[in-house]
Amino acid sequence: MADEKLNDNVRAVERALDILMAFTASDFELTASELLKRVALSRPTLYRLLGTLQQSGFITSTGEPQRFRLGSSVAHLAHVWASRQDIHYLAQPMLRRLWDATGETVSLFITQEGKRLCVAEIPSAHPLSLRRGIGYQETLILGAGGRAILAFDDQPRHDIEELLRAADITPAEHHNKLAWIREHGYAVSRDELMVGATSVAAPFFGGGGRVEGAMCVYGPGARLNDEKVEEIARLLMRECELLSAALGFRRPDAVTAKQ
Rank of each mutant, 00 (worst) to 15 (best):
L95A: 08
F58V: 08
F152K: 13
G207S: 02
E227A: 15
F23E: 02
L224S: 01
A202I: 01
Q112Y: 09
H88C: 14
D100S: 11
R96L: 13
G135Y: 04
R147N: 07
F205Q: 02
I160W: 07
N176S: 11
R250N: 12
G209M: 10
G63L: 04
M215H: 07
A151H: 09
L117K: 07
S189T: 03
A197Q: 06
A222Y: 09
R69P: 00
A167E: 09
L128T: 15
D168S: 14
R11E: 07
E161F: 12
A214H: 01
Y47E: 13
V188Y: 05
A125I: 08
E162C: 15
D253M: 14
P156W: 02
A40S: 15
N225L: 09
M1P: 14
A254R: 10
K37S: 15
C118A: 08
A151D: 06
A187K: 00
N7G: 15
R11Y: 08
D191W: 05
S83Y: 02
L20S: 00
Q259G: 09
I87E: 05
E161K: 10
Q259N: 08
L50Y: 02
L46E: 10
A257N: 09
A125K: 11
K258S: 13
A254W: 08
L36N: 00
P65Y: 09
A125W: 00
F109T: 11
H76S: 13
A201Q: 07
R116K: 12
A32N: 03
I141A: 06
C240Y: 02
D154P: 12
V229Q: 06
P44D: 00
H88A: 15
R157N: 02
L35C: 11
A233T: 06
V80T: 05
D100N: 14
I59A: 03
I181H: 01
A2P: 08
S107E: 07
E64Q: 14
L6C: 03
H126A: 09
